[in-house]
Design a protein around this nucleic acid. Sequence first.
RNA 1: AGGCGCGUAGCUCAGUUGGUUAGAGCGCAUCCCUCACACGGAUGAAGUCCGCGGUUCGAGUCCGCGCGCGCCUACCA
Length: 882
Amino acid sequence: MSEIPKRYDHTAAEERWQQFWDEGQIHRWDPTRSREETFVVDTPPPTVSGSLHVGHVFSYTHQDLLVRFRRMKGDNIAYPMGWDDNGLPTERRVQNVLGIRCNPHLPYDPDWKAEKVEGKKKKDINIQEVSRRNFIEACAVITEEDEKAFEHLWRRLGLSLDWSEQYASIDDHCRRVSQFSLLDLVEKDQVYNLEAPNMWDVDFKTAVAQAEVEDRPQQGFFHDIRFGVQGGGELLISTTRPELLAACIAVVAHPDDERYQGLFGKFAVTPLYGARVPILAAEHADPEKGTGILMVCTFGDAMDVEWWKQDRLPVKQVVGRNGRLMPVVFGEAPFESTDPAVAQAAYDQIAGLTAKQAKKVSAELLAQEGSFPGGGVALKGELRSTDQMVKFYEKGDRPLEFVATRQWFVKILEHKDALLEQGKKIQWHPSHMQTRYDHWVEGLNQDWCISRQRYFGVPFPVWYRVGVDGEPQFDEPIFALPDTLPVDPLSDVPPGFDEKQRDQPGGFSGDPDVMDTWATSSLTPQIQSYWGVDAARHEKLFPMDVRPQSHEIIRTWAFYTIVKAWMHSNEVPWHHVVISGWILDPDRKKMSKSKGNVVTPEGLLDEWTADGVRYWTARARLGTDTAFDPGVFKVGKRLVNKVFNASRFVLLQVERVSGEDSLLGVEHITEPLDLAFVERLRGTIAAATDAFEAFDYATALQVAEDDFWRFCDHYLELVKLRSYAEEDTAGRRSAIAALTWGLKTFLRLLAPFLPFVTEEVWSWRFAAEEGRERSIHTSAWPIVGEVDEAPRPQLEGVYEAAVELLAAVRGAKTIAQKSLRWPVAKIEIVGPEIHRKALETVLEDVMRAGHVSDNAVSLEDGPSPEATRFAVNVVLAEEMAE
RNA sequence: AGGCGCGUAGCUCAGUUGGUUAGAGCGCAUCCCUCACACGGAUGAAGUCCGCGGUUCGAGUCCGCGCGCGCCUACCA
């Protein structure tokens, strides 16, 4: 038995046990055990952004609680760690930290070294352009540092991850699996490549997918613009985007709209540009909005894209990839005009401007005399302000534009029903989170665009034949062979070609894009299972048991992962999804870096102990947002101290009584009070286990914690003096045996929540008992069968009667402002028979704990006051005994 | 605008299939250094269960209508 320290030094203990777990490799997945006895977690790979906040602590601890429970139940745990270093966040961070930009056309410079510019003033930084390969090397350097910071925090938190199972979403293995996934989708005809209008971020200059788009409120202005009608007349269009007038390809109104019945089939003529455009009827036009008749452009919004497709209208793209208006030539298709010279003169004033600038200039042009065909002013009346919702890339600063570009898409629109079915096969915790998934699937309106015009990501394993005209033939892709993956088509050469033929007529050209980061993240189960690489391992790990994540990424991570598992394997990726809520600051706002209200975790761990911080996270039920409340950390730390001190008391008693002999077994538990306590604990074990089985760690904690405090406040006090006995009596043996099993049980019930302090006190005595139990975390989760040798109590309410009477004695002393050790001269107890009988069996323990002298007790029959078992009259002694 | 969730003590939250007088912790008040713990303990005060209506012998719980908060989805005329 190791020496029991007087105080808990959490800093030293936490470090010591982290190291112990590492050395003992107790978190290792055992690949030799069967799938049935294995519990597989699809750990979220955090975006390695370099800054940690308390939100990370929150959801990752939730997973760990469930994992630690399953481990103690005897499961073989597969709990890997992945890092998401792919994509824009890293790219942007690297640009800022190192002051570089990628120029993929530059040659690789082997001597180039990354140098941090943090701390320098903005004007002193010269942005340096580097090659794609240099840029990716720089990314790797930065992410490695960031991963270390995360790993350090995870270890301090006591996450029982298997550190031998790690991946990074940009590493060779992940690139291989991602590219293999694309090839499999090609083979299954679930992916296509198409030039089409698509949402485009003009600053990042990349396509984005529906899932990455968010609506933001913006103030817009209606411009009422007069259009001519061919053959005479005019109509009034209300638009917030006058800068797209040159891109107008039609005018539409609702087919039932009385006002425009005579116009359908005719042509309108745009002001300034003199373009002849058809006037069409369309159900989607809302007679209530604006003037009820609107212009269709290429492309103002998603609806424009729909109309363009539906009515086979021409493309008049004016907004370029950089968000500025492109030069166009009037008088040539598709920019026909009744007066090309006038049109050109007008357009030349907005060409080259940003959309926002062009809007202002367009309004000025439209307000000029002569802007309406045949004389007059096209802009009618004042601008009217309107609140509108505008689509933004979630990481972007300017509105998205619809730009015709060539992109890769995964077919999801035609599979909505099948994807809803897959969602039903998964158990969502809490269950209402499935509704979010359903809503998202039902609301899909675009296929999944998976190509991004960026540098840091997984390339497409694709080349295109180059025609004799020197242009890539996109309908003739050449795919990499699966056993050559991963490839980079910008440096690798497709089968049957050599490097000299790159970008040459008759040769090949590599696809310059990278995949959407979700195209890789959607494969975390397959990455972990080595799908397509190691079939035996895949069998043992896929589908997984549980996916932990937060609710805002149901539409991305959960959804895409379900898509991929279904397309590749016709399976669900996991059987359970557990959803953590958010952390809210005291103003009930979500804590996030952009709001500047985050709390960094390391300081919390210093102040409240790792277990105390874990306690706070464990109090938050799944799916429920939680206030950041230092009061709860405090409670957690108190519990940690209580565990330490109660264990100290029990084990000092055990040490005194048992010496170095083996612990007293449960067969020694014979006293009625002890049996009543054991009976109570049986119920606690069952309740905590049921809750954990249902993924409800919060209830498991509450049940265990409540009963542990009762154990300390009541049972320990009731049994303490009996256990102090000098002689080896049956009563003392019973007390020590019950305390031993009780403590051992509480420690195990609390171990998933408080892994450090429970391990610490477990090591004093229990660890030596059995080899398997060297660590509490690989010891067996308590079951009621352990204590079968202690008979069930014959009477009910024994424990409760004892507690009630002790409270009455304490109350009398408190009211008299006396110490709890103050002796009682006389106590009169009146109550009904059933309660008296229960009490009589434990009366000696209660009287001893209350310092009631012998022969001072009277117990009589009679009614008890409401909600109590007994009427009690306590008379305190005149003086403190010596 | 539709949907999901939430609203219980000053604060953070439990409250099971409807069932006596609605619970816990924090905070607060008063007291107690007792040999596990003062980083502790005892005792106590504190609630219009968001509002209105309904079902029921009985509603915090079920139904309807509101109000407030959060989120999801839709919405660039």
